[in-house]
Design a protein around this nucleic acid. Structure first.
Length: 176
DNA sequence: ACGATGATGAAC
DNA sequence: TTCATCATCGTA
């Protein structure tokens, strides 16, 4: 019998690109009232290190980016364009700023829509992804074949310059 | 194609 | 304190 395994620090304390790719097919679980809803992750982006010009951490340890330098497995939630919350998970070792942006789950495309649909906002910034906090990640044993994964450049990061905007740090899982 | 909408970081 | 910018989305 298959168990739903909650992903912990160990899963997130690996290279960001590795974490990003392996998050496809995993589940984002959100407690909404008395019930838990699980959403299969279908699209993510990696933000990797202090040199990554597309990353908020490229400006150093600013108040907003500070969480990216912290413990892996914590949530990083920030507002963009004055209205959309972006949901990220911190990855890699402490003091190395990196995170994975959840861009889509099955049935919901776009990071802003994911946050709106799952009621994610500033209240979750900096909290550990765990059952206790009401938002966590699970491995439910869903098989993911490599052939269903596409890598592309990240969305909306043209400001980062040719090199960083061109990196294929976006991972998409083809839906059935 | 474009405006909404407000926090953020950097400049002054 | 002011200013440009923005890991997007809905409407047209």
């Amino acid at each position: 019998m298959r168990s739903n395994k909650v992903l912990t620090n160990k899963f997130f304390d690996r290279p960001t690109l590795t974490v990003a790719e392996s998050m496809l097919g995993k589940y984002l679980v959100r407690r909404q009232g008395r019930t838990n809803r699980a959403y299969m992750i279908t699209e993510v982006e990696a933000y990797d290190g202090p040199k990554d010009k597309a990353s908020h951490a490229s400006h150093g340890r600013t108040p907003r980016a500070e969480i990216m330098f912290g413990e892996p497995g914590r949530l990083f939630v920030y507002l963009t364009y004055g209205m959309h919350w972006m949901l990220n998970v911190v990855t890699g070792p402490e003091d190395y700023p990196a995170a994975v942006l959840i861009r889509g789950v099955k049935g919901i495309s776009g990071p802003g829509r994911v946050s709106r649909g799952l009621h994610v906002d500033k209240a979750l910034n900096g909290v550990k992804a765990s059952i206790h906090s009401g938002l966590w990640f699970e491995d439910r044993g869903h098989p993911v074949s490599k052939s269903k994964i596409k890598r592309t450049p990240r969305m909306g990061v043209g400001y980062a310059g040719k090199y960083w905007a061109g990196r294929k740090y976006r991972f998409v899982l083809a839906e059935e």
